[in-house]
Design a protein around this nucleic acid. Structure first.
Lengths: 150, 150
DNA sequence: ATCAAGGTTGACGTTTACGTAAAGGATAAT
DNA sequence: ATTATCCTTTACGTAAACGTCAACCTTGAT
């Protein structure tokens, strides 16, 4: 009953291409303890779990997490199955703080979205004015030209 | 009819305290062109508009904007009233890109929130198990003790 | 008068997150 | 056999965003 399912693996450049980062970045994340791919000789072999980690790391980055923070969360999550009470309470504390961060960020985003919309409207209306002005200028020139020719 | 309303001003340390940043940070933002407070002698005097700028800069930071990006947005927004067509179109382009960013970030946050909730549940259930185990251990010891004493 | 509290300008230091060679091993195609 | 394509490690470089002195005004309180 040797379970040999889900053994899809990835090379470093495959992952780099998929997530639009450089291989340097991926190696750097490993050096920082965020990834730990198997090796085949000395080449790195990434499995699905590694891939998810990379994905989460990158998403964390987009949300303003430092690599150290992401690592901490990963490590804690991994140890939740065997952690002691103190560890678990600490993790819960961290989690609630992160959730508060995310709520704040949600607000920030929503406000920014509104403001971007306002800026967009304002910008479009400015654009209209500019175009109307240019049109008028053009027709003025046209009339002048007609006068001279006619 | 000299309009002298809304002249509430702030010192650098007032703003620093309010937004929980250092004065160094605020001076740095000025150096980067994000703020331009008036001076009274050589001391900086910030008005409401300066304060809003600082607020926006910090919110931008929370959302992953670089200072340069924020500055660009500020500058463009200020120039929308007199900008030429090309400028305005460029601004609209930037704005739509930022909006796309924000939509992505909204997704990221929502997914992370779900995952944080899952992690929290898992963590709490682990905590329960630990506590139950400890309780059982304690009662076991108690029984042993009773045997010896009795 | 002096002293503490706040303000100023340099200017160098630090952390984070990679970029950018340099130098080389393994394999597959021509 | 050599060229091309990946992969590797080592190591120095860098941009952003401040931190951290140092050295110096200024001003109101004791």
């Amino acid at each position: 009953m040797n379970k040999q399912v889900n053994v899809r693996t990835f090379s470093i450049s495959e992952l780099a291409k998929e997530f639009n980062v450089t291989t340097r970045t991926i190696r750097f994340y490993e050096q920082q303890g965020l990834l730990s791919p198997k090796r085949q000789g000395q080449t790195r072999i990434y499995n699905a779990k590694d891939r998810v980690r990379l994905m989460l790391t990158l998403r964390g980055k987009r949300l303003g997490f430092s690599l150290a923070e992401s690592k901490e969360l990963f490590d804690m999550y991994d140890s939740t199955t065997q952690g002691n009470e103190k560890q678990l309470l600490y993790m819960l504390d961290i989690l609630s703080k992160k959730q508060a961060d995310m709520r704040q960020q949600l607000k920030d985003i929503q406000r920014l979205q509104e403001e971007l919309n306002i800026a967009e409207s304002r910008c479009k209306s400015s654009l209209e004015k500019v175009r109307i002005r240019d049109k008028e200028k053009a027709s003025l020139l046209e009339r002048k030209l007609e006068q001279k020719v006619g």
